[in-house]
Design a protein around this nucleic acid. Structure first.
Lengths: 135, 135
DNA sequence: CTTACTGCAAAGTATTTGCAAAACG
DNA sequence: CGTTTTGCAAATACTTTGCAGTAAG
């Protein structure tokens, strides 16, 4: 049931996320395709992002502070989230890719995914702070 | 500035989280101390939970699905979240405790914390599903 | 007395949903 | 045509906040 039909809006949303290196929020995606679809609604953006996540074409990142972000990289990797500017940086920590399998050994449930997030202050914010202090 | 004053409500909230093995939500804490403080408000619970997190006495767990949960265990450890029943299980994966330091090497920002979450289906939900299928 | 904390209600943020009209196949 | 998708608006879920009164030091 529920065969997928083509939609120009969904294609645009997918393209936008695929070409983003910034881990956009739903709102950022919305603003980004507003030029192409002046009448598009936030609801449509949310519906399609959620659908693309279900299809496994993009990934959702829950930040714990502010709106969810979306990631064109669906391969297992970690994130660094700056608690000041909220920018997200990818961290390729390949040594942790085996985590799921490692933890799954002797675990009674079924593990389907895992996500590691590092929190802190990014280089830019560290420098901005320093400048502020001396002025 | 802002010297802390004692409050019976805050003590009760702390005690409740400290004695919980269930990673309660703000709402669960609220319900749990309602008997002792019939007039307590959700706002007070949120304010105090947030304060206790800032003091480092408890930890906040962002689930990415549903409300935040609170944890009396502030030592670095991982969580398994069941995507069906939303129960949270602690995972002591001590081999990953060094992650922060490892990733921090050669990283330009300042890492203050990290959090690993595993998603999947817990033992109980797996079994419940099986029973349902045969009936 | 002075400052912090509370309860209440209202506001704020992020996301989901119902529905009639439009688009797709 | 039948089904999916859209835009809009209203609803929901969770959390924060302003304020006047109460409690702590």
């Amino acid at each position: 049931m529920a065969t997928l039909k083509y939609s120009r809006q969904r294609e645009s949303i997918r393209e936008f996320v695929m070409n983003s290196r910034e881990h956009p929020t739903a709102d950022t995606v919305y603003a980004g395709i507003k030029a192409e679809f002046p009448n598009i609604s936030l609801g449509t953006v949310y519906r399609n992002l959620s659908l693309l996540v279900d299809l496994g074409e993009i990934a959702k990142i829950t930040t714990g502070d502010g709106p969810d972000r979306f990631d064109c990289n669906t391969k297992p990797h970690s994130h660094f989230i700056c608690t000041q500017c909220h920018n997200i940086t990818d961290i390729e920590a390949s040594e942790f890719d085996c985590m799921k399998e490692k933890v799954a050994e002797g675990f009674d449930g079924k593990i389907t995914g895992h996500m590691t997030t590092f929190y802190g202050i990014c280089k830019e914010c560290l420098e901005a702070k320093k400048i502020k202090k001396t002025s």
